[in-house]
Design a protein around this nucleic acid. Structure first.
Length: 554
RNA sequence: UGCCUGAUAGUAUAAUGGUAGUACGACGGUUUUUGGUACCGUUUGUCUAGGUUCGAAUCCUGGUCGGGCAACCA
């Protein structure tokens, strides 16, 4: 079954390591989010990469929360992250927290002080920044850099014991103030923060920085391949240096290009702003690029995994077309979504030769892509139908395969009708369309011999139910809001949400289930919103169908 | 004006010194009781200038362009 697929550069590294017998061929990756926001589609790429790699090479993946900054992290985020990873279809080997290692990390810092490789600095943040120099000028040492090991040990212990206020002192690695890599100019290892931590409470008032937590956590867990995004490339020398000096497990860091996607933003900071400033309903607003937003919008886990598979993994900066994500969800839903009929913008059609008051029950299959139609449902029919306003034109152009006086179409799963006349109101708006039907053209039993080009959807007026339907468009007006002048929020699309309060839906849709995708024939894929109730159905449009006619019209 | 990193159709991604391929997009066609799906076809590319080599997207040198780095963020 496995047609050969070329490996991405990380898979190549892993295969080389396995072939060389490194770590006995063991593969252990980790997904290390900071619990300071909800996961987005960019995280999905990382999740699929880390978990996918482990799965492919008989390894495991840890879920590790990088919770070293208590002022930004909350349990709400921990919970949402776990839910999203699970929903995407992945199981972690262990649920771990950097905060589990605070004691361990403290000991490692002490070890570094003892080796003369770390010192307590009393300078202010501004002084430290100034003393670091610039990319073209080396930094300058201060008097604290030459503190004795004993003094450093005592000071660090006092820091831990809460004898100082926030900002009074920091622990710094003593590396090279003239390094061309700014990160190596005596980076901070610990800072004082008298803040409540979501897991350790008030047990600590000093917290390790990323650079003195991440690699060490990897080593503690004996992670074999620590995969992160490109912005950490310049951190790698530090990552390796600490591991080497501490003589702990030699985890290795590899970097890939993060995902960027057109017409959206992909940073927790920006997504957070959209939420807190109420530009969207919340982290799971269906227009958001968050996993929870996509889920609420109707995207399936399988479609997101497929997307992550298709975009590939490389080191080059990229900008993926949103249309690729749309392709992936259409491909999935086409094969699974049940077909139903709904009229979003209604106009009434009256069939003049069908007895008033008569109804009959027609049948429609659930999904023509599935052998046998995947079952079906009953569809009530009568002489009054709702049809889509755009399916009728007073003066139809050539190749308009829908209705206009004298034109014929098939009503999906029902009869062929011929448009005879229509009525307009005082403002010139078409209000009713009059048709005659061909009794011999009943779907499945057509002996009329008539062939029509167009088929339209419809809902019987007396049997119709109603629902609110929410149509979504791209959140931003421009491809890359982050690269535009000024605030990215200036480029929000004001028409990204359109609410249709009263859409006519076929009766069977009252049985729609949460989490299931439905195709409203010719209109797109829809799913029940989380706010939907039996009394008030609310559908979200996941994505439109491809519309070749719209393209032709121009 | 420092260091790191990258550059292949519109967008992504392969080709690991030996025929530049695949997917999405776009365009055209066939089928169709969804102007959907499916199927078929067309289209467009190795940043640049040198060098090594029988042969370079691949190796070397210079340039150009993009991204990252000077948070008590991760």
């Amino acid at each position: 079954m496995s047609e050969e697929r070329s490996l991405n550069f990380i898979e190549e590294i892993v295969e080389e390591d396995i072939a060389a017998g490194k770590h006995g061929g063991r593969v252990l990756t980790r997904f290390p989010p900071e619990p300071n926001g909800y996961l987005h589609i960019g995280h999905a790429k990382s999740i699929c990469l880390n978990f996918g790699l482990a799965k492919k090479y008989n390894g495991k993946t840890n879920l590790r929360f990088d919770d070293t900054n208590p002022t930004k992290e909350e349990t709400e985020y921990v919970d949402s992250i776990k839910e999203d990873v699970k929903w995407l279809g992945f199981d972690w080997a262990e649920e771990l927290y950097a905060s589990d290692y605070f004691d361990n990390l403290y000991d490692l810092a002490v070890e570094l002080i003892k080796k003369g490789l770390a010192y307590v600095d009393d300078s202010t943040a501004e002084e430290i920044a100034a003393q670091k120099g610039t990319p073209t000028e080396p930094g300058t040492p201060n008097q604290y850099r030459s503190r004795s090991v004993e003094e450093n040990l005592q000071q660090f212990a006092d820091m831990k014991d809460g004898k100082y206020q926030d900002g009074d002192k920091v622990l710094r690695a003593k590396i090279d103030l003239a390094s061309p890599n700014m990160l190596l100019r005596d980076p901070l290892m610990y800072r004082i923060k008298h803040a409540h931590h979501h897991r350790t409470g008030d047990a600590w008032c000093i917290y390790p920085m990323y650079d003195f937590a991440h690699g060490q956590s990897d080593a503690i867990e004996e992670i074999t391949h620590s995969i992160c995004t490109l912005e950490f490339v310049s951190h790698r020398p530090l990552y390796d240096l600490f591991i080497e000096e501490l003589e702990i497990f030699p985890s290795k860091q590899y970097e890939f290009a993060r995902l960027n996607m057109t017409y959206t933003v992909m940073s927790k900071r920006k997504l957070m702003q959209l939420v807190s400033e109420n530009h969207v309903e919340g982290w799971d607003d269906p227009r958001m690029s968050t996993i929870s937003g996509l889920r609420r919008r109707g995207y399936t886990a399988a479609s997101i995994r497929e997307f992550c598979d298709r975009i590939g993994v490389a080191k080059r900066e990229n900008m993926i077309d949103f249309s690729l994500l749309e392709f992936c969800i259409r491909e999935d839903l086409n094969k699974t979504a049940w077909r139903r009929m709904a009229v979003l913008d209604p106009i009434k059609m009256i069939i003049t030769n069908y007895p008033e008051g008569q109804t009959e029950t027609l049948h429609g299959e659930n999904n023509p892509e599935v052998e046998g139609g995947d079952g079906g449902r009953d569809i009530p029919f009568s002489n009054e139908l709702w049809i889509e306003r755009e399916d009728f034109m007073e003066e139809p152009p050539k190749k308009f395969f829908r209705l206009g006086v004298g034109l014929m179409v098939r009503l999906k799963n029902a009869y062929i009708v011929k448009c005879e006349d229509f009525k307009k109101d005082a403002d010139g708006n078409v209000t009713e369309i009059y048709c005659t039907y061909i009794p011999e053209s009943k779907s499945g039993h057509d002996t009329s011999g008539i062939h029509v080009k167009g088929t339209i959807h419809w809902v019987s007026v007396p049997h119709a139910k109603t629902a609110e339907v929410r149509l979504y468009d791209r959140l931003f007006k421009v491809e890359d809001p982050s690269s535009e002048e000024g605030d990215f929020k200036e480029y929000l699309n004001p028409d990204s949400l359109q609410i249709l309060p009263n859409v006519y839906i076929e009766a069977d849709l009252a049985n729609a289930e949460q989490g299931k995708g439905y195709q409203f024939i010719r209109k797109g894929y829809f799913t029940l919103d989380k706010l939907s109730t039996a009394d008030k159905l609310v559908f979200n449009r996941t994505v439109t169908l491809k519309d070749g006619w719209a393209v032709k019209k121009g």
